[in-house]
């Protein structure tokens, strides 16, 4: 059979890093396609005259403070991930682990904040079915949250396996988490901007894009 002894030389983690990053890039491309199409659907649906933005003056998100708070949590999560990335690169493993935990805490706070917001909205009668804008709000924030949860699986795997990982492998894992977090923060900022837009803004964007 194919079993063979292995050279004492260690594999090069540059290769591992390159492979993992290539995989992540394609994953982010697929996620981009997903959110791009969701946003396109939103832009088209928002052209119909029954669209009533949740940020209209008489609607609950006229004051988007809760969304800003949630955004701050995610931004802090992303910043913490970057800090952990730098620490891991310098082989400060303890510090990197602590900051990773902090990043997870901020991300969980973001998710809890989103759930709290959904509950508030539905308690006020702003159900998904009440208006297409509400439906898109629940759907897009939900899909984004699912992607954050996916990120948390990678995050927890990195934390749980940290003891077994060599420095270079740990550094790669943290780096992948950081890139993913930054990317999802970017997507969230786009979604945030769109979800509190007035219909006129959608009309202007649509007209600019020629549809």
């Amino acid at each position: 059979m194919s079993s063979y002894s292995v050279s004492a030389e260690r594999p090069d983690y540059q290769t591992l890093n390159r492979r993992a990053k290539t995989g992540l890039r394609f994953l982010l491309a697929a996620i981009t396609s997903l959110f791009f199409l969701f946003i396109l659907a939103l832009m088209i649906r928002a052209q119909f005259n029954d669209w009533e933005s949740l940020s209209a003056p008489w609607n609950p998100l006229a004051n988007p403070a809760p969304l800003w708070v949630n955004t701050l949590m995610l931004a802090l999560g992303s910043a913490s991930m970057q800090w952990a990335r730098v620490a891991a690169r310098k082989h400060h493993r303890e510090l990197a682990l602590q900051v990773m935990l902090l990043a997870g805490f901020f991300t969980l706070a973001f998710l809890v904040g989103q759930v709290w917001l959904w509950r508030q909205l539905s308690a006020l009668g702003f159900y998904a079915s009440a208006n297409p804008a509400n439906g898109f709000f629940y759907m897009l924030t939900g899909v984004h949250a699912v992607h954050m949860l996916g990120g948390l699986i990678g995050w927890s795997k990195t934390l749980l396996s940290a003891k077994r990982y060599a420095n270079e492998k740990f550094s790669t894992a943290v780096e992948l988490c950081a890139i993913y977090w930054h990317y999802l923060l970017g997507i969230w900022l786009v979604l945030f901007a769109l979800l509190v837009c007035e219909p006129e803004t959608f009309a202007a964007i649509a007209s600019f894009c020629g549809f």
Binding site: S129, P132, G135, Y138, M139
Partner: peptide, 10 residues
């Protein structure tokens, strides 16, 4: 699924 289960009108 949203249209079917949650009654939205996408």
């Amino acid at each position: 699924l949203f249209d079917k289960l949650l009654g939205t009108s996408f």
